[in-house]
Design a binder for these strands. Structure first.
Lengths: 222, 222
DNA sequence: ACCTGAACACCGTTCAAGT
DNA sequence: ACCTGAACACCGTTCAAGT
């Protein structure tokens, strides 16, 4: 179709509204994410909630990836950083990581974004900084602290993400467990025998995982 | 628009082709995934490669989520399971996990799917089974083995995923590092001081991570 | 500077019709 | 049983036009 010289007339049906802001966009996006998951947080849906069109958002945000990174950070604003006394580094670190997990659990979807987005916002940075300081207080050397902080965050985030992606797809733990239970015991003896253990724990399992990584960090100086 | 009683006439322009198969669909999907990443693997693009329409695929696959789970498993077919001698459980386990990482590195995108898909295909099961058996050979009790296998897989998968999602978004390690380097040293002293360590290693770092988890598992019996 | 509506190039999935 | 094309209900992003 050749419409090089078609005549375009005004398509406006209402006057322009008050200016938006990045803040209000991020807040709206986060609320949609928390309420409806990642698919509820599209540019078009955010815009609709703000009573505007999707194209209006591009003044405040380069693209949806950039918006994601703002939203993750906004989602981490409630993570609690304990006071920071040097002699209780471990309990404080564990308590921070529990708070982080809690925040991700209460707004699943943030976990997914946290996993796919490089954290450069202020809240993410503060959490990272805090972990590094606690590990150093616990005696970890530079490399162990740096690599260990990464491992701890990766662990917590992926635990939260696994859970959220499971419930998002409507898979119950029981249904997955059932499919493992019905496996051929000759081909997969361990999977059948350890079926119960593989799906046990939760709270307890997460604490154990933290312990595993922390012990491992301190026993493997770098 | 009310088109309850519109007349539909034939829309066919060519005769039906030979039957597809789930195998050929999964193979084609995997090739697109390996070559172009997750966004290259849409139902429509797979169909186009098979010279048909997207709707034809739904005879062999319930929805795209189900296809994902087949594709992940297909992508894991080249992971090498070492022989399995009881006295070298650790080196064999490490070697399997390296092979797993390698496979994910050579077809990024599989890592993303592996993280978001419950693994129930034969290759995934065989890998899981193998890890459980090696951990047990190394002296881990039932719960430690079950939870530890999960941790190891989660670790390797998320390491691969982080890398693939980074390069997919065109972020170089250097650019991320630069943004950390320019942080306020008063607010984030550790992040600035440990800048080098946080982005160092790779191969070495991954091996260290495996060691951390393995040590942690054996030191935290459950 | 920023809001607006249309347009472009995509998605996954369903369904009546045809073989 | 399974292929086909159209349709539905979505996407992210760009752009000319308007204020």
């Amino acid at each position: 179709m050749d419409n090089t010289n078609r005549i375009i007339i005004s398509r406006r049906t209402r006057p322009a509204k008050d200016a938006l802001s990045r803040e209000i966009i991020v807040k709206t996006a986060f609320e949609l994410l928390a309420a409806e998951g990642l698919s509820g947080m599209s540019m078009r849906k955010i815009a609709k909630h703000l009573d505007t069109g999707a194209s209006s958002l591009y003044v405040y945000v380069k693209n949806i990836q950039e918006l994601y990174s703002y939203v993750v950070d906004y989602g981490l604003r409630d993570v609690i950083l304990p006071e920071g006394r040097p002699n209780s580094w471990k309990s404080e670190l564990v308590s921070l990581l529990n708070s982080y997990l809690n925040v991700l659990y209460t707004s699943p979807g943030v976990a997914e974004l946290a996993l796919t987005t490089i954290p450069i916002g202020p809240y993410s940075l503060a959490i990272n900084e805090y972990i590094l300081a606690r590990l150093q207080a616990g005696g970890a050397q530079a490399k162990s602290a740096a690599w260990g902080a990464d491992m701890l965050l990766l662990y917590v985030t992926s635990v939260a993400f696994e859970q959220s992606s499971r419930e998002q797809k409507g898979m119950t733990l029981q249904s997955i467990r059932d499919s493992y239970q019905s496996l051929d015991a000759v081909k997969y003896p361990m999977l059948v025998r350890l079926n119960e253990e593989m799906f046990s724990g939760d709270e307890e399992r997460f604490q154990w995982g933290l312990e595993v990584i922390l012990q491992g960090i301190l026993h493997n100086p770098k």
